[in-house]
């Protein structure tokens, strides 16, 4: 799922300090799962902002509301009125959610409360690791289920580079980061699939050069562009 983290309070304060009726809009989706922007975090943020405004001798009226999802039209209506009544919205959704709310209320200033970081796994409660960069051309089939785009710090397809540490197989940039290609080699070897990386893999077909829209299989007819 999408993983995100709260921005520094000062930064959020800087964006909204001139407004008088401020709505904190939480999201019940991914950011709720990673405990960055769900109902509880949204309420806590609101309380902290109230205190911050008070300390800075500024008056503002705060409201908090949690949407089921901020990236889906089905749930937009729930928050329509409360958004309309606010001077500005501070959204605790991911970047996609913030943009969808902003697009749906084009006259309303909408600000992000979070930095959206990555698509990752839950290693433990409150501990997340990046696993996918949505490159659009999945390589996991020949890399033993280990993503070289995400996990290799140089995103190379014919690794490992010369930077793998001798002693512990860590990446040249950080002893805490295991070399993805060392791991790919070990896994493929253990599965008897080393031949997968003995040939030269061609350059990536980068799919993230322009904004992407995806029509799911089975929906082609529905979204076919009118000639």
């Amino acid at each position: 799922m999408v993983k995100a983290k709260l921005k520094p309070l000062e930064e959020i304060f800087g964006m909204i300090r001139s407004y008088k009726k401020i709505l904190t809009l939480s999201c019940g989706g991914c950011v709720s799962v990673c405990m960055a922007g769900g109902q509880r975090e949204g309420m806590e943020l609101t309380l902290e902002l109230v205190e911050f405004f008070r300390q800075n001798r500024l008056d503002a009226e705060f409201t908090h509301y949690t949407m089921e999802r901020q990236c889906n039209p089905e749930y937009l209506f729930d928050a329509e009125e409360i958004v309309r009544e606010a001077d500005c919205v501070i959204s605790t959704a991911c970047g996609a959610g913030v943009q969808y709310i902003a697009e749906s209320h084009p006259s309303k200033p909408v600000f992000p409360a979070l930095n959206t970081l990555f698509i990752g796994i839950d290693r433990d409660v409150g501990l997340y690791e990046e696993r996918c960069r949505t490159c659009g051309d999945c390589k996991l089939g020949y890399t033993g289920g280990i993503c070289p785009i995400t996990r290799c710090s140089k995103s190379i397809l014919n690794g490992p580079c010369g930077g793998t540490h001798f002693s512990d197989g860590s990446c040249e940039i950080d002893r805490e980061i295991p070399c993805a290609w060392n791991d790919i080699f070990e896994r493929l070897k253990s599965q008897g699939r080393l031949e997968n990386i003995l040939t030269v893999h061609p350059p990536s077909i980068w799919m993230d050069q322009a904004q992407r829209t995806m029509v799911q299989y089975g929906f082609e007819e529905r979204y076919r562009k009118k000639e």
Binding site: S153, K154, S155, I156, L157, N158, G159, C161, G162, G163, E172, I173, D174, V200, H201, P202, P203, S204, W206
Partner: peptide
């Protein structure tokens, strides 16, 4: 060459490229 990661240098916040890798560069 692949090249040292930007983290080592004096422009740490730059966007690294790595569009292709060193072996693909040889082929190119």
């Amino acid at each position: 060459l692949s090249g040292d990661h930007p983290n080592f240098g004096n422009q740490k916040t730059s966007k690294k490229v790595f569009d292709i890798d060193s072996i693909q560069l040889i082929a190119l």
